[in-house]
Amino acid sequence: KMENIQLTEEKREGAQHFRGSFSPAAYSRKMFGMFSGHEEIVRLRCRKDAINILRDRFGSELMVQPDDSTHFFASVTVAVSPQFYAWVVGLNGAVRIVAPQHVCDSFRKLLLEQLEE
């Protein structure tokens, strides 16, 4: 939290990072909590009743692909981190990670480690 914030005449540093193609909205859709991780395109299998959750998280332009009468697939770019995995767990089975395999394996490893402690 920030306290006693004041406007100064100092020049802001880092302006070069905000020129061109940087989109704060796109960046925030990838991040979970303020935890960064390696960016991945992750394929999710989701229950249809979770569509609004995904659209809220990843934007209304989210592209989905039907799977069966009760599920769809979505490919999203995320910063893979423990916070991303916690978001998936918090949806109580409505969203499952199906690819890439190394992300599935990392998620499974994290869950198993939590059970052991």
Results as ranks from 00 to 15, higher is better:
38 H>I: 08
114 Q>G: 15
39 E>K: 04
4 N>R: 10
27 Y>P: 03
95 V>M: 09
50 A>C: 06
107 F>Y: 15
55 R>I: 07
39 E>N: 12
93 G>L: 12
93 G>K: 10
100 P>T: 09
66 P>L: 01
78 V>Q: 07
18 F>E: 10
78 V>G: 00
19 R>E: 07
17 H>T: 07
94 A>N: 14
45 R>D: 00
47 R>S: 07
109 K>F: 08
38 H>A: 10
67 D>I: 00
30 K>T: 07
18 F>I: 12
82 P>I: 01
108 R>F: 14
72 F>N: 10
14 G>Y: 05
76 V>I: 10
14 G>V: 00
106 S>H: 03
80 V>A: 02
38 H>D: 15
38 H>F: 13
105 D>C: 02
105 D>Y: 08
33 G>C: 04
26 A>L: 09
101 Q>K: 15
83 Q>C: 08
40 E>Y: 13
20 G>W: 08
3 E>V: 14
30 K>G: 02
92 N>M: 11
67 D>V: 07
20 G>L: 04
95 V>F: 00
103 V>D: 01
103 V>W: 05
22 F>M: 05
34 M>G: 10
27 Y>V: 04
76 V>H: 04
112 L>A: 14
97 I>V: 12
113 E>L: 09
87 W>M: 10
43 R>A: 01
95 V>R: 04
41 I>L: 12
91 L>F: 11
24 P>N: 01
72 F>S: 08
101 Q>Y: 14
81 S>C: 00
50 A>W: 06
86 A>Q: 15
14 G>E: 04
94 A>S: 13
99 A>L: 06
111 L>K: 13
19 R>F: 02
31 M>D: 01
51 I>Q: 08
83 Q>M: 11
44 L>V: 03
20 G>A: 06
108 R>E: 15
77 T>E: 07
46 C>M: 05
48 K>G: 07
90 G>E: 05
98 V>K: 03
42 V>S: 00
58 F>C: 06
32 F>I: 00
